[in-house]
Design a protein around this nucleic acid. Structure first.
Lengths: 129, 129, 129, 129
DNA sequence: GTGGTCTAGACCACA
DNA sequence: GTGGTCTAGACCACT
């Protein structure tokens, strides 16, 4: 479980941790029941405070991605728990809207946008990156 | 120039203002040389602080969307000024990546994602909304 | 907004804060759009750290009871946001089950249990306490 | 004596063990003088640590449900030992209060609450589950 | 002023 | 050892 964190990014560290764990789940590198490193060990690995890792884990628990197993510690939840819901899709839509509309305003060809997304999907599902 | 601001959104007000102005540009409702309302009038129209509108205008100037015209005040810049650049596309890519990867992790069919984006493009270019 | 907190209780302080705010909502003392004290002022009023209050507010936000308004600070959300859901009712059921079953084991008459609940409802809805 | 433990629950394992033993007593499956499995055998049956079972048994002894018999080991106590007391009812009341008040705040009809409790009582006393 | 984030150090319940 | 809670002090973005 190696995470690359950019301490100078505008994106909060805890969000970066969330995103990378979600990425690992999307790629299938983390599957149901897989154990995650303890908050303490991940915090020392990444070089941040344990509370920052804790916040990330809590956010992922709230989203259904993770769950605390009393024996194994923090583990990946079953898929049903974080399956796409209508509420999620609404939120996704409004976030996509902002990005897509700006790309249109800046004259980006929609083919290039499609290509971008296709590549992201391939790199994730294909496990190329 | 009617802007709808959601004070309950987690998106900062100044960002919401930016996004809506960019949306108007994307839709062709605002074109090169078009004047924007003064900071004061827009602030009172929308019901927010002067500083907030100011911050939005400054961000849009930094992005090349707006420019100060000595006579007309703040106007929409020429298209070349905010044309898609490599730096922009890199930033767009990394933001899209986060959204797309989470959608994959949550098991959203990529067809649904495509459909979502296509609809956003249509609604923006077609001016249906 | 006066909260009575028992620092020696087993119930975490942040939970006590949550419960009392929920109680105020149930009693109608707090209604949609009503502003809550800032984390800092409530923390100093109650005599706890501001992070403890923050955690309570965050939990209530996650549950839909509260929402951050960029002008008014933390306010009570609209009722729809925290309306009873199936997931909530399932959780409520399993918590009730534990309490009720123990009361049966201890030979408490079910009439006494009913009476207890009826009184709680009256005291809450009637605003007697 | 079959106990089902959910390691993913937020309820501590030892509490889950307590609750299930209390449930068995409530249902009449365990009566005064009935022997409970030894700490060792129960621990290996359920697949948890000795200390965990020990903690559960100790908690139940403190509550009067169990008692150590020199010959038979841990047995169910006589009913009087764990009969409902005023202290218990006060504790029960405050726990019920939290649940009931939240259900009111979330707009759950009190009829539904009654129904829920009635069903729990029937399932326990009727021995249907 | 607000809430959001991060760090640091501490104690406790649980297993 | 784990995660959960609390405290304390700091900086930042937003309004």
């Amino acid at each position: 479980m190696i995470l690359s964190i950019d301490l100078n990014s505008e994106t909060p560290i805890y969000s970066q941790i969330c995103n990378q764990i979600i990425k690992a789940i999307a790629k299938g590198q983390l599957k149901e029941g897989d154990e995650l490193p303890s908050v303490r060990s991940l915090a020392s690995d990444v070089g941040v405070n344990l509370h920052t890792v804790n916040k990330a884990y809590n956010a992922l628990k709230a989203d259904g991605f993770l769950i605390v197993n009393r024996r194994k510690g923090v583990v990946v939840n079953n898929k049903e728990a974080y399956q796409s819901t209508e509420a999620y899709e609404t939120a996704l839509h409004s976030q996509l809207e902002i990005l897509v509309i700006e790309s249109i305003a800046r004259g980006l060809e929609s083919s290039k946008l499609d290509e971008m997304i296709t590549r992201i999907i391939e790199e994730t599902k294909g496990g190329l990156s």
